[in-house]
Nucleic acid binder design. Structure first.
Length: 491
RNA sequence: CGGGAAGUAGCGCAGCCCGGUAGCGCACCUGGUUUGGGACCAGGGGGUCGCAGGUUCGAAUCCUGUCUUCCCGACCA
């Protein structure tokens, strides 16, 4: 009624916007390109953050916090890095406002110009490596394994809720190591952490791979990524992990003394995931009725909707619901009871479906008489009547089943959308008609990559880590190729 | 940053062409009847018409500027 959702078939982009806004995840704000993350969306982020944070701690990392502002001179120390970010930096030039003497309200005080302009961090490599210089003296200080949860700003031309906003929340890990091998191992380890998180918590299958040179992070030697596939057949980079070599160590003079008392530059990594994951989650599982939340990170896993006539029934049902809640909560299940009398049950059913709550329990007087409840699962919309006896265990298993089903469904779709193709015309045709990943040979040159992008808007998403070597001919140029790479149109 | 569309009550919209008392649906408040898939009846409250200038006796309506959003491109996570 009041909250119609555009169907995916009618307008995929609008469907996505509808889910984010009507599902209560976020809103547009008065600031261009910036969004307000609403409590429901932030609860989701908190669950993602908590799960990831634990995984980071379990792999030996600690959290710290570095400044929002970066002196302009820092950013320019690493040539490739500045090249990559210069075009999208917000710059602070003054530190004071004053009343316009001509009565025009507040103006920037021209007297208050900063001696050195400050950049609002688009990422923190430079300020962090400038700091690490002081933290690292000897091999005994290594490895240095630090993560920070922060906001960053990248001045984007065109923004989309969660997928690309001028300001976003993320975590960025920055580590320093004594050897190249150790840094590469760290890079790969964190990529595995991301892949595990995406698959086990978000129920979103991902492909681990390495980026081509042109898709590489500015300042990295190698960029690894996890790539996910959305329901419209477009790929989305869900996380990246970079092997930075000694680029930042050299730019910021970060050296350490080896056991042999020799000065050497340290080896670095950085890795991050952002609130973009929320956009990925929305597009991976949701349907035309609304959001579909994977149980493991759903802000609410179960909602109980009472169905009653009159205060007496409300009272009795409320008591039973409280008991169910207590049992579920004791099992660590996040459950909400909605006895708001302003909305009728049917309205609540639709509302919670839109919010994607995995399991709904309907509890009415009739059920109490029969010692049963009706449970409905969001993913398949199946309903069943089950006994109140042993309900918590049934719910617990159902949540696991939903989690698994979402993953399997997404994986089936994803696997069905990786297409091997060896013919250029077919390649172009598939992009338009089917979408998804196209596994094709590439001659390894940036020129060919660029030409394919110009002709088709498809980019090389990654070279899968488990790729097998296979001689073939480049899809565009026919030049010899030693392996297939994954092409797709991407967010 | 280019091209298109839009901004009027919390939300969705009409009114604008042709200037003259700001309207409809949902939501909200009160009372009543209801409650197993987005209830109904009656009464009621709420709007600097994005913002700033201009034209005019008079501007939601005409003109100029500006801000914001959406869609499509270019750029990028």
């Amino acid at each position: 009624m009041s909250k119609e959702i555009t169907s995916r078939a009618a307008d995929y982009a609008q469907w996505y916007n509808d889910l984010v806004i009507k599902g209560g995840l976020a809103d547009y704000s008065a600031v261009r390109g910036c969004m307000v993350i609403k409590p429901y969306g932030f609860a989701l982020w908190e669950n993602m953050r908590d799960a990831l944070d634990k995984m980071f701690k379990d792999t030996g990392h600690v959290n710290a916090y570095f400044p929002l502002f970066i002196p302009k001179s820092f950013l320019s120390k690493e040539a490739a890095h500045i090249e990559g970010f210069a075009k999208e930096c917000a710059v602070v030039t003054h530190y004071r406002l004053k009343n316009d003497p001509d009565g025009g309200g507040l103006i920037v005080d021209p007297e208050a110009k900063l001696e050195e302009e400050l950049i609002v961090r688009p990422t923190s490599e430079t300020i962090i490596w400038n700091t690490y210089k002081d933290w690292i003296q000897s091999y005994r200080d290594l490895p240095l394994l630090v993560n920070q949860w922060a906001n960053v700003v990248r001045w984007e031309m065109r923004t989309r809720l969660f997928l690309r906003t001028a300001e976003f929340l993320w975590q960025e890990g920055h580590t320093a190591h004594a050897t190249s091998e150790e840094a590469v191992a760290e890079t790969r380890q964190m990529l595995d952490v991301y892949a595990t998180f995406a698959e086990e918590f978000m129920a979103m299958p991902v492909i681990k791979g390495v980026k081509t040179i042109s898709e590489r992070f500015a300042g990295a030697e190698d960029t690894y990524c996890i790539e996910a596939l959305m329901q419209d057949g477009k790929a989305l980079q869900a996380g990246t992990s970079h092997f930075l070599g000694q680029n930042f160590a050299k730019a910021f003079e970060v050296k350490f003394l080896t056991k042999e008392n020799k000065q050497e530059y340290v080896w670095a990594t950085s890795w991050g995931v952002s609130t973009r994951l929320i956009g990925a989650l929305v597009m991976a599982h949701s349907d035309d009725q609304g959001l579909v939340m994977p149980p493991r990170i759903a802000p609410q896993q179960v909602v109980i909707v009472p169905i009653f006539k009159g205060d007496e029934q409300k009272q009795i049902i409320g008591e039973k619901a409280a008991q169910i809640m207590k049992e579920l909560t004791a099992m660590g299940i996040r459950v909400k009871y909605d006895d708001n009398e302003n909305a009728r049950p049917g309205w609540k059913f639709a509302e919670y479906e839109m919010k994607g709550i995995p399991v709904r329990i309907a509890l009415g007087a009739r059920d109490l008489e029969n010692n049963v409840v009706e449970i409905a699962r969001r993913d398949t919309k199946e309903k069943q009547t089950v006994s109140l006896d042993g309900l918590p265990e049934v719910i617990r298993q159902l949540l696991d089943e939903i989690q698994l089903n979402l993953y399997n469904k997404a994986k089936t779709y994803r696997d069905a959308h990786i297409t091997m193709v060896d013919d250029w015309d077919r390649f172009v045709e598939l992009l338009d008609e089917k979408g998804g990943f196209l596994s094709a040979h590439w001659d390894g040159t940036a020129e060919t990559e660029e030409t394919i992008k110009e002709k088709t808007k498809a980019t090389i998403r990654c070279i899968p880590l488990d790729n097998k070597k296979e001689a073939g001919k480049c899809i565009l140029t026919g030049q010899p190729s030693e392996q297939r790479v994954l092409f797709a149109r991407a967010y």
